[in-house]
Amino acid sequence: MRVIQLSLKSWLVLNDNARPQFLIVRAPMVHKPTGETHVVHRVERWNHIPESRHLLVVCDGEMDARKWCAAELEISARAAANRRPGVDPATGLRGEQLARFHALNANQRPSVQPWPR
Rank of each mutant, 00 (worst) to 15 (best):
N82A: 15
A71S: 11
I49S: 14
S7T: 15
A79R: 11
A106E: 07
V3D: 04
A99I: 14
R26K: 14
N47F: 08
R2V: 14
A106L: 07
A71F: 06
R84L: 15
Q21P: 00
R42D: 07
N15M: 06
G95A: 15
R42I: 07
L8C: 03
P20W: 05
Q97W: 02
N15W: 01
A77P: 01
A80L: 14
P50K: 06
L98Y: 04
L55K: 02
L98P: 06
P28L: 03
N15S: 06
H38M: 03
M1C: 02
A70F: 11
R83P: 00
R84D: 10
V87R: 00
L14K: 13
I49V: 15
V39Q: 07
H31N: 11
G35R: 00
V57Q: 11
M29E: 07
M63K: 06
L6H: 00
A77R: 03
P114W: 02
W68I: 10
V57A: 07
K32Y: 10
Q97I: 04
P89S: 01
A99G: 08
V87T: 06
N17S: 11
V58K: 05
E44T: 09
P20Q: 03
V87I: 15
P114Y: 03
R26A: 12
R84A: 15
S52A: 15
H48A: 09
P20H: 05
V25T: 09
Q5K: 11
H31Y: 14
N107F: 14
N47Q: 05
K9M: 13
V30M: 15
L98N: 05
P110S: 03
